[in-house]
Amino acid sequence: MPSSRKPSRSAVAAGADAQVLAARVMAMQAEAGITIAMRMPILLKGAFGDSRGQHEATNAVMEKLSAMVESSLAATQAATAFWWGLALNPPGQFDMAAAAVRAADSTLEPFARRTRANAARLSGSRR
């Protein structure tokens, strides 16, 4: 009798979640490139005293700081949920792959949201 090595639903779902996360990371990288390319001339003008460029530099630093704090809180919350889920569920009942994808997704979301908004604002398009 031949044995079937069909992946479980959990493994398939975790793989799909990982692919979605990878696609989001690639989109975020593209939007970051657009943001950097559009922001550089503005920042260069700010280095020579232009108030808009100086304001853009201040906004960039503040956005990164707030995204870092928000991301840290999300990572802490996801790690706490991961360990509680691992501790409170019977062995074999906790989906570690899905929990890892949720942790990575919640950690990246603050940066992704700001990157998407900056790319749209600086390129003049609204999504």
Rank of each mutant, 00 (worst) to 15 (best):
A23Q: 09
R5T: 03
R121Q: 09
S125L: 08
K64I: 11
S72V: 10
E56V: 10
S4D: 14
A30I: 04
A60F: 15
A112W: 00
A97C: 15
S3T: 13
K64N: 15
P7S: 04
P7Y: 00
A16I: 13
E31Q: 09
T115E: 01
S8Q: 01
R52K: 14
L122V: 02
A14S: 09
A18Y: 01
D17A: 11
A100M: 03
S51C: 09
F82V: 00
H55P: 04
D105R: 02
L108Y: 00
E70C: 10
T80M: 11
Q93L: 07
A11W: 06
W84K: 13
V61K: 02
A78T: 06
E70V: 02
A14L: 03
P91G: 13
A99V: 01
A103N: 04
I42H: 01
W83F: 15
K45D: 04
Q93H: 14
P41Q: 04
N89K: 15
A60C: 10
G15A: 04
M1Y: 06
M28W: 03
M1E: 05
A119G: 00
I42D: 05
P2S: 13
F111M: 10
R121V: 08
K6C: 09
A99S: 05
R113E: 10
R126H: 14
D95A: 12
A67S: 13
S123Q: 08
N118E: 03
D95S: 11
A100Q: 10
A16C: 09
L108T: 02
G85D: 01
R121W: 05
V20I: 12
T107N: 03
M1G: 05
V12N: 05
A79Q: 14
P90W: 15
A13Q: 10
G15H: 03
V20L: 12
G33K: 03
G33F: 05
A100Y: 01
R5Y: 06
R5I: 05
T80A: 13
G33Q: 04
T58L: 15
A119T: 06
T58H: 05
S4I: 12
L43M: 11
P41K: 07
S123P: 00
L43I: 12
A119C: 09
M68T: 15
